[in-house]
Structure formats: structure tokens, C-alpha cells
Amino acid sequence: MGKRVLVPFDDSEQAHEALEYVLDEHAGDELTAIHAIDPAEWGYGAPGNTLGEHWQQEAREESDEIQESAQAVADEYGVELTTVAESGVPSDVITQYADDNGIDQIVIGSHGRSGTRRLLLGSVAEEVARKVSIPVTIIG
């Protein structure tokens, strides 16, 4: 059995580059694309608030579309890919999933956000690389 490789995927250009790299370089390995549903992007509705529930539902529907996009790329390459989604702070979701699932390597785009949001929120790739003890390849 090959390696277990995790690719955080948010449908950004850098995430596509990371996924395509994995599909090229690790086609025979066990590949998983993970989408982190960031509660900070659900809006400011309080839990139980109808507005909060609406944003959460929209986030889950968007996540389904993002996972379908990753699967479509893998299908183009003819490579088997598992897709998952987890809610939480993206760097925490990625590192926890890696720990819980015996991931051997993470391949991540250099950044999914751009401009001010990236500066304010920091780089998920950088946080992941600092938090895990497995190899992290940063693409882009």
C-alpha cells in the first residue's frame, strides 16, 4: 500500500495546482481532498439564529460544489480520490484530519485567499506546516 496523501482543497487556483501535482506525482497512493468549512465565513448569526442556520446551509452547499470540483479534476486524470468536508478553523481541521487518519504527507497550495483577507488571517499553509510532524509540500 502506498502513502496516504491529504490535499486541502478550496477551489482556488493554488488548490487546483496542488491537487494536479498530487494526481501526477501520487496517482498510486491513497488520496484525499479535504475542504474546511470555516465557521468565520458563515456570517455573524448566533448559533440557533435563523440567519446563522442559513449561512451554515449555504456553506455546506458551497462545500459540496467544491468537493465535486475536486472529484471532476481527479476524474480527468483517471485517479481515485476521496473527498471530505469538516467544519472548523481550516488549519486545525487539516491537522486534526491528518492526525486522525494516519496521513503520511500533506500537499497544500501556498494560499487560497488573496489580498487583505490573507494578510489578516495568515497563511493556512504556513500554520499547517508548523503544526504537523509529517512532510508538507507547499505548491504555488
Rank of each mutant, 00 (worst) to 15 (best):
A18K: 02
H26G: 00
G2D: 03
V73L: 12
G88R: 08
V128S: 07
N101C: 09
L31R: 05
G52Y: 01
E127H: 09
E61A: 15
I66P: 00
E127M: 11
A18L: 04
L120F: 15
T137H: 10
S87N: 10
E127Y: 05
T137A: 11
E20P: 07
G140W: 04
Q57I: 07
V84F: 03
L19V: 11
K3S: 13
G43D: 05
E80T: 15
L121V: 09
H54I: 12
S63W: 02
A27D: 13
E86G: 05
G43N: 03
V73N: 08
D92Y: 06
K131D: 14
S63C: 01
I139W: 05
S12H: 10
A70S: 13
D38S: 12
E13M: 03
I139Y: 06
S91T: 11
D24Q: 13
P39W: 08
T137R: 08
I66L: 03
V107G: 12
T82L: 10
I37Q: 13
E17R: 15
D75W: 10
Y97T: 07
R4W: 06
E41D: 15
G48A: 03
S110I: 01
G43E: 01
H54P: 00
Q105V: 07
I37L: 13
E41H: 15
G112F: 02
D24K: 14
A15K: 06
V128M: 10
A36S: 14
D64A: 15
A72T: 09
P135S: 13
G122W: 13
A15C: 12
L51C: 00
A33D: 01
V107D: 06
Y44D: 06
A125M: 11
S133P: 00
E13S: 12
E65Y: 03
S63D: 04
G115R: 11
G78K: 11
V73P: 06
D64W: 04
D24E: 15
G52K: 02
Y21Q: 13
L31M: 07
I108C: 08
Q96V: 12
T116P: 00
S114Y: 00
Y77I: 04
V93G: 06
Q14K: 09
L23M: 12
S87G: 08
E17G: 02
E126D: 15
G122H: 13
G112S: 03
R4A: 14
E86N: 03
L19E: 08
A70R: 05
Q57W: 01
L19R: 10
G122K: 14
G112I: 05
E13T: 14
L120I: 15
A18D: 02
Q14T: 14
I94W: 00
D10N: 14
S12F: 11
V128G: 08
T83A: 04
R118D: 06
S114Q: 09
N49I: 00
E68W: 03
A70P: 09
H54E: 10
I94E: 05
Q71E: 13
D100I: 01
Y77E: 03
E126C: 08
T116F: 11
A125S: 14
V136G: 09
V73F: 05
